[in-house]
């Protein structure tokens, strides 16, 4: 693998990681903003306000956990791919 190919593979890996990272954060923001609207309505109704607040907190925690998990796995896959590309380039060097 030559230097250009290695740089491009690492670039592709970084780009895919960025897409998942930024994409999941953007979807999380939209998801959270939509949920906030619903909870705001429910929490304004006295009979259901208290349980709604509990669900709101739990929902927020689950939301953070799910999206953070996606980003963690994404970063881990990125680290593994980087190591694989580096190792491949080291074991099979090519001319530029």
């Amino acid at each position: 693998m030559n230097k250009t190919s290695k740089q491009r593979l690492l670039g592709l890996r970084a780009l895919l990681e960025d897409v998942v990272e930024h994409g999941s954060s953007a979807v999380e923001r939209a998801h959270r903003a939509t949920a906030e609207r619903t909870f705001a309505v429910l929490e304004a109704i006295p009979p259901v306000a208290a349980p709604a607040r509990l669900v709101h907190v739990a929902h927020g925690a689950v939301l953070t956990g799910v999206y953070e998990s996606i980003r963690l796995v994404n970063r881990a896959v990125g680290t593994v791919l980087t190591a694989v590309i580096e190792e491949t380039a080291r074991s099979a060097p090519g001319e530029d």
Partner: peptide
């Protein structure tokens, strides 16, 4: 964006 992030695809 590729240039800003020093991406090898630029």
């Amino acid at each position: 964006y590729l240039v800003r992030t020093d991406n090898g695809l630029a």
